[in-house]
Design a protein around this nucleic acid. Structure first.
Length: 346
DNA sequence: CAATCGTGGCG
DNA sequence: TCGCCAAGATT
């Protein structure tokens, strides 16, 4: 494993760092997110927040701005809180103990093992999606990829296997193998250093491991949204109690269980934003977006606003932003797609 | 424990 | 077009 990793590891930005903070950031961004997606976000984030001090002092809104488009925004808020906690309560020194790491916001069993082994050289195991795949295939273990029983077994195996002398390389090697060779579909078993003893390969169907759990049914939703303009500005609201995108800015609107129509949007807007008057509605191209198992079609309208905004308790903030500010705002791609389709944003 | 959170890419 | 999936944590 160690020899294979040494020869085959990819040149990734976070592998240029030995700073535990930089590794921490990479591990949070990589949660449920592929390497290629993370790289540009990681580079920008570290350029703006090169150390704990800069991130600890930053406003959450700016942290979210740099996370905008990467998804799973709770990760950004928890990372921010975690860094602030270390900065304030531990003199900016990241603890090395697994249990202490797990006590930090956003750091669970996997990330604690990753930081302990990669940043601190401790012989700590880790189990992520790659490790589940590699080990369940190699040992021919039954059970769904997320079943607690299989995961318990895998953590025990990983703890036995981890190299005491080079735990970080071993753990990264296991994950690298899962990402590049022992892939979910079309595993490249001919290139695998573990092929000889692999139970799944010898069973002729490596893809049968791990078993795939049943997925939740996809739900279709319709959403109304407004690109409400006053001069060269656009009305945005900050999600506070909504189900999705807490803390981010977004277009005003609502979800429906029926067909979208402009009258529905007008009645929603007049109720949610008392004091404002809307006119000159023009339908924008419908956009589609998926959030976990939801498939959402957004029908948006462009319209003009007049009148004075009365604060609404369901939103923390409502503001008119200049169009030029849109690219650097913490917006979910969900809304960025609407703005781009309407030509309001590059 | 099981459901949930975003997004882009792939076949 | 659509289902499936990816360096998980939280509630």
């Amino acid at each position: 494993m160690l020899n294979w990793y040494e020869k085959n590891k990819r040149d990734l930005p976070w592998r240029h760092h030995s700073d535990p903070y930089a590794i921490w950031v990479s591990e949070i961004m990589l949660q449920q997110t592929q390497v290629a997606t993370v790289i540009p976000y990681y580079l920008r984030f570290l350029e703006r927040f090169p150390n704990m001090a800069s991130l600890a002092k930053a406003k959450e809104s700016e942290v979210l701005q740099y996370w905008s488009g990467l998804g799973y925004y709770r990760r950004a808020r928890l990372l921010h809180r975690g860094v602030q906690k270390v900065w304030q309560e531990n003199a900016g020194i990241l603890p090395q103990e697994i249990e202490s790491l797990k006590g930090l916001p956003g750091i669970g069993p996997y990330t604690a093992g990753a930081i302990a082994s990669i940043a601190f050289g401790q012989a700590a195991p880790l189990v992520d999606g790659n490790v589940v795949r590699v080990l369940s295939r190699y040992f021919g273990l039954k059970g769904h990829a997320k079943s607690p029983e299989l995961l318990r077994t895998l953590w025990e195996i990983a703890a036995i296997l981890v190299s005491p002398s080079r735990p970080g390389d071993f753990n990264q090697g296991l994950m690298e193998l899962g990402a590049t060779v022992c892939r979910t579909r079309l595993p490249a078993c001919e290139r695998c250093p573990l092929a000889k003893g692999c139970v799944a390969l010898n069973s002729q169907d490596p893809e049968a491991f791990p078993e795939t759990p049943p997925l939740p049914k996809t739900l279709k939703l319709t959403r109304l949204a407004a690109v409400a303009q006053r001069g060269e500005t656009i009305l945005l609201v900050q999600a506070q109690h909504q189900r999705w995108f807490q803390g981010l800015w977004g277009l005003p609107g609502e979800f429906l269980d029926r067909e979208a129509d402009d009258e529905g949007l007008l009645s929603h807007l007049s109720q949610a934003y008392p004091g404002l008057k809307f006119s000159r509605m023009v339908a924008l191209p419908a956009t589609r977006h998926a959030i976990t198992h939801h498939r959402i079609t957004t029908q948006a309208w462009s319209l003009q606003v007049s009148g004075k905004l009365t604060p609404n308790p369901s939103f923390k903030k409502m503001r008119f932003f200049p169009k030029g500010a849109l690219p650097s705002l913490a917006l979910p791609n969900f809304d960025r797609k609407v703005l781009q389709a309407g030509g309001f944003c590059p």
